[in-house]
Nucleic acid binder design. Structure first.
Ligand code: SF4
Ligand code: SF4
Lengths: 153, 153
DNA sequence: GATTATTTGGACTCTTTTATCTTAATATAG
DNA sequence: CTATATTAAGATAAAAGAGTCCAAATAATC
């Protein structure tokens, strides 16, 4: 798998948050219900994103999680790096340690192009962009429901 | 990681075999030594590739493993499919079940492009091509050694 | 101050992947 | 036929990833 499950959940949750009114704290429980992700597992993932400064948390009643900066400044790459690290973009195709152009394997050239495509995609896509697209076309973030179910209270 | 470790080892071993005289059986032990991969683990992986008809095995003294068809007809994709399956090319970015253009997620369009780049790279690269490149430029298939160490007896 | 809603953090379990070990089967050579 | 070199197959073990559970901390409300 390209991204770990934790990372995928982190992306889905971040998209969910980006779809909410700016500044509003959303309880993890509500997110985990809507997104059909284990509450406790999601909690751990959001803690990582909070620690990285991408999200902000607040305890107690009316507490929850929100984005720490505007959704149009958060790239997918930010979330991937926070959860999966830079492994995807450094280590690669033949998995040899200490990779790079100084000591390449035969696949390096071709793989480097592909890897750049992945990197570009993650860097050039923001949460807001996807939320707008999802909202406009009612795309899905869960197995069944369309995008709209995320906005019902 | 894009590819599982089994898959990466399978690729390295296949490249090794493609670098050998056509028709020659190479014992797994020699491969595992040269490529610095656990013998027993590599054995299992090669069994899969043999079962898929990509490699051919022969028991007993003078036995070993060889490619079952010319290296210039074996795409990297063949090996990836045999070991990791089509998961990489079907399941994807947001990991939602039953994906596809009929029921897409907001990332679908962007991801589909990236995925096609990966697919293209794996489909348009043959073992022979990489072996020739590796040989010409003495690229590496192991942590330390250059390509040439693979050809010492 | 007590109760309740929430996040935090740690321990624990389950599953999959990765790796090792042991025995059997097969082929060759003497 | 025996010894040896090899792959095949299955059992087991270790490590990593995914998921669960519980107690503690914090904040709001009554
Ligand atoms: S040489 Fe390049 S393609 Fe090969 S493993 Fe290293 S970074 Fe990846
Ligand atoms: S909709 Fe497309 S990008 Fe999204 S998870 Fe499915 S196949 Fe992947």
């Amino acid at each position: 798998m390209l991204l770990s499950k934790s990372c995928v959940y982190g992306l889905r949750a971040s998209l969910y948050l980006a779809s909410k009114k700016e500044g509003e704290f959303i309880p993890i429980k509500r997110m985990s219900d809507k997104l059909e992700i284990s509450f406790h597992f999601l909690t751990k993932i959001l803690q990582q994103l909070t620690a990285e400064g991408i999200l902000e948390s607040f305890k107690g009643p009316n507490g929850g999680i929100r984005l720490n900066r505007p959704g149009n400044t958060v790239q997918l790459m930010d979330i991937v790096l926070a959860i999966d690290g830079e492994q995807l973009l450094t280590e690669c195709a033949l998995g040899l340690p200490g990779c790079g152009i100084k000591n390449p394997c035969p696949l390096h050239e071709k793989w480097a192009e592909t890897r750049d495509a992945i990197r570009g995609m993650l860097e050039n896509t923001t949460l807001t962009e996807l939320v707008e697209k999802g909202r406009a076309e009612n795309l899905r973030l869960t197995t069944d429901g369309g995008f709209d179910i995320l906005f019902q209270e």
